[in-house]
Design a protein around this nucleic acid. Structure first.
Lengths: 343, 343
DNA sequence: TTGTAAGCGTTATCAT
DNA sequence: ATGATAACGCTTACAA
């Protein structure tokens, strides 16, 4: 019923064979200029559109790449997706986005679904629940090209693109210390995630460099990546109840940042007078409304772009690739000189 | 190189014909229980996955639906996408998301791309630039199932799902009036969008009902839907410069709300003491940080779900559908009893 | 330069 | 109940 015009129709109408028409259309073969012109003009006239499904079946590629992220409703990821799209679009690839909602099971299903659906490659940012990687390893061993970004799997050998989380956390912690804080808590995401470890290391290194002792009671994990407000609420309450109450918090993610600020407000704690805050976030809205918070901003768009370039090069490389690269981009520390009102 | 196991391999290994294997797999035909068991077990063992591309070619459908939104990095849309996904996933459909970034040209390209790529149907929310609908009309006439949501095209006859924007704007305006405002400005999006008109009508109706005269100088359009901060900045400045400066603003969108609040802050205008604010927004962050603003919240998730259900029913209906429905869902007015600090 | 035909992996229509 | 075969729309040896 829909899109009935095929190469056959053109061939019949023009008294040519389907192969000649195909050649005229694909341009790669010897063909007389006039036949080509004839075909192209007629195809244009009747609005011929090649059937990409048939093409895929033949070429054994779909010209689409699959993306696995936790949540589209997350500024980091939506910016990364924009970066991914900007490259994929220009290189003639479709982008299929799936969300895990931080669930391991969803991740498994999505990855398998896309693989069976014939994506040419995968851009993956792991869910916070993921510990077992066999679903991905399997596909990797089968030769499906993949690139990890942000939340990477160290045990899988392929290209990876990340922000310099270590440096970002280091800089932010250093800033807090230099601003007078010594009792710096760290509110962070699931220990499963690579970013969690990287950020923690940066935090520890900065503490060490300035001879600030690390207090294990100051380290709190929110398994759900800040999705569940109650979890953040509990963590904040716990921090505030400590005998040696922290005078600063380094927050490891976008959603955690928002949740934490909200909790503090409910507790009547003022930022930055009562407590100083530095956090990873790509939210422009948080940025807008809370100039009292120092933020570490990741180059999400750029990360998406680079990951996509890498993936396409893997897909299109003729020979099996054996050299893999981990690309690390600087995160930007945005310090606000207490210009705005306190929260 | 990837996914080499086909129905043929199974047939060869088991000494059966491909058709028998296919029948065993698809279940719809007469086949002996034992052969079926044999095939299914073997298929399971060697990890057979049907090739959906071949299936699509045969069935002439792709089991995928295309989504057109302005921006994924927008709370309304990302929530709607979650709703879309939740239904599509359960019904066995893939979701392919594309963004227009409020550009007409991108909309045309995306829609055509998805159509040629063989999506079974389209979920569309128009870009703010779109005035000409021929790219969509063409596909509609060809019989491609489509459902509009949020920003709908009135001249195309198909299912539509929207929030009750009229009522939302009415309620919010009424609230502002009852809270003591009489000079209520309306900062809104592109006049091309259906939502703009609907919200404006609600605003006007509330003014009329309470005998508040409408002042054309209070009506400001931001063509880019709040994407360009400078545009909002200009609008706010213009409002504040009026001899008869407004004492309230009804803001028509998510991004506009954030932008407007930011501008007001830069101007040193306090909310809600200097000026009262009510706005359409689905942002949880804005919600978090600005309890001084009354918000109209759209049931984005539900809208996505319903639109998807409608689309799938269109796709799967055996006979051409001639009865179309416009489903309208209530928007929720969230009034905050000035519990929090002023901005 | 162009036509013929095989093939991509399925499903469906025939026979058997 | 099962097997042979055509068909979906396209690309591409190979033949002419």
């Amino acid at each position: 019923m829909f899109q009935p015009i095929t190469i056959k129709d053109i061939a019949k109408a023009l008294g040519l064979s389907t192969s000649t028409v195909s050649r005229a259309l694909t341009d790669r073969y010897e063909i007389s200029a006039e036949t080509k012109k004839l075909v192209l003009e007629y195809a244009e006239k009747i609005g011929y559109q090649p059937n990409p499904i048939a093409q895929s079946l033949k070429e054994r590629r779909s010209h689409s790449i699959g993306v696995v992220v936790a949540e589209v409703a997350n500024n980091y990821f939506s910016q990364a997706i924009n970066g991914i799209e900007s490259i994929a679009y220009n290189r003639g690839y479709h982008v299929i986005i799936t969300q895990t909602h931080e669930s391991f099971d969803r991740e498994v299903v999505n990855v398998q679904h896309m693989a069976s659906r014939g994506v040419d490659g995968l851009l993956i940012s792991l869910s916070s629940e993921t510990q077992n990687l066999s679903h991905i390893k399997y596909l990797h061993e089968k030769g499906l090209p993949m690139v990890f970004f942000d939340r990477v799997a160290n045990e899988i050998e392929t290209h990876k693109v990340i922000a310099n989380n270590y440096q970002g956390a280091f800089d932010a912690t250093e800033h807090l210390i230099k601003s007078g804080s010594r009792k710096i808590a760290h509110l962070t995401s699931s220990p499963n995630l690579s970013i969690t470890a990287e950020r923690f290391d940066g935090y520890r290194a900065a503490l060490a460099q300035y001879n600030v002792p690390f207090n294990p009671a100051y380290l709190l994990h929110c398994e759900h990546g800040g999705m569940i407000q109650a979890e953040v609420e509990l963590a904040v309450t716990q921090l505030l109840a400590l005998a040696d109450r922290p005078d600063a918090i380094l927050i490891a993610s976008d959603r955690l940042s928002a949740g934490c600020l909200s909790s503090l407000k409910m507790h009547g704690i003022k930022v930055p007078t009562d407590i100083a805050i530095a956090g990873f976030t790509n939210s422009d809205v948080a940025d807008l409304f809370n100039p009292a918070m120092t933020t570490i901003r990741q180059p999400a768009f750029k990360i998406g772009q680079i990951a996509t370039e890498m993936l396409i090069s893997l897909i299109e490389s003729k020979h099996p690739v054996t050299e893999f690269e981990t690309r690390m981009l600087d995160a930007e520390l945005v310090v606000r000189e207490s210009s705005g009102a306190a929260l």
